[in-house]
Design a protein around this nucleic acid. Structure first.
Length: 284
DNA sequence: ACCCGTGTTCGCTG
DNA sequence: TCAGCGAACACGGG
């Protein structure tokens, strides 16, 4: 169930495992057709024999770029992990991990598995090898880690929205990569009540929120690095659950005390069908 | 059995 | 026309 920090870890590990390697074979597993829809498993044929040239991430999306043949004609593999998608690194002879949907055999004796229990994730073969060349990704907003967050631009967008600020932050066209956890965490860092209409935020509050989004993502990534999930020894391009201890300040902490000196007890509410965690005392 | 789930998309409604 | 909402997708885990 990845957001930007988890997908960033996945991108780093995939680079380490795959860049420079040639894809010897691509093997659809159980329910591969669901992951690969609408194109279906036949689309994978375009990747056989190709060499991996890079891995890009924008928001929660990964683009593995490859080059085919002598001319090096570029082709991309666009991956979105959905709720339970994972990239796994295994020896070629190892048995397929649980929920493996597609196996990519590399030329170094290893294999990459795309595993996905709930099948909300997607793999798509796309022409070209850059994110800018994928039309379906054109509507994504700026990536907070790569591009930063422009407070003035954010303020102009939020001014038109009546939805609660926390719900607005989940829109990938506003900012790419903020998910349900980071939205709660950022509102807490900015001391903003997640239930307030997005348009009600004062400029100074949008400024705090812009900084909070970047800070929360960097903090989460740093915690993952401490856990070692992005280390050379990691064999999963993801962050295993459950995370112990919970690395977040408010998410998943209903009933616990807010970490702030002037905080109260963290509450859980539901907004647009999703859980929101916040401190009613320090978030106004 | 029942409720919950780090995501996205579609259809309905006002 | 569109913002906003709930359901759907699919399958465990507590």
């Amino acid at each position: 169930m990845p957001e930007l920090p988890e997908v960033e870890v996945a991108a780093r590990n995939l680079r380490r495992w795959a860049v420079g390697r040639r894809v010897r074979a691509v093997e659809p597993g159980p329910s591969a057709a669901v992951v690969l829809r609408p194109a279906g498993p036949r689309a994978l044929g375009a990747l056989g024999g190709a060499r991996v040239t890079g891995v890009e991430r924008v928001g929660k999306n990964l683009l593995v770029s490859l080059a085919r043949g002598r001319a090096g004609a570029p082709v991309g593999l666009w991956s979105h992990l959905g709720m339970t998608g994972k990239w796994l690194h295994r020896k070629r002879a190892d048995p397929a991990p649980r929920f493996s949907r597609v196996r990519f055999v590399l030329d170094d004796g290893c294999a990459l598995h795309y595993a996905d229990m709930r099948l909300f994730g997607r793999l798509r073969v796309v022409p070209g090898a850059r994110f800018g060349e994928v039309p379906d990704l054109a509507a994504l907003g700026p990536d907070p880690l790569r591009d930063g967050v422009d407070a003035r631009r954010l303020r102009a967008r939020l001014a038109k929205l009546r939805v609660p600020i926390k719900v607005a932050l989940l829109d990938q066209g506003l900012l790419a990569g903020v998910g349900n956890i980071q939205a709660s965490e950022a509102c807490h860092r900015a001391r903003i009540d997640p239930r307030r209409p997005a348009s009600s935020l004062a400029p100074v509050e949008v400024g705090r929120l812009a900084r909070a989004i970047v800070a929360s993502i960097r903090y989460t990534l740093a915690r993952f690095e401490e856990e070692g999930v992005a280390s050379d020894r990691a064999d999963i391009a993801y962050v295993e659950e459950p995370r112990t201890p919970n690395p977040f300040l408010v998410y998943g902490r209903a009933g616990e005390r807010c970490p702030r000196r002037d905080g109260g007890v963290i509450q859980r509410v539901v907004q647009a069908g999703r859980a929101t965690f916040f401190c009613p005392k320090c978030q106004r």
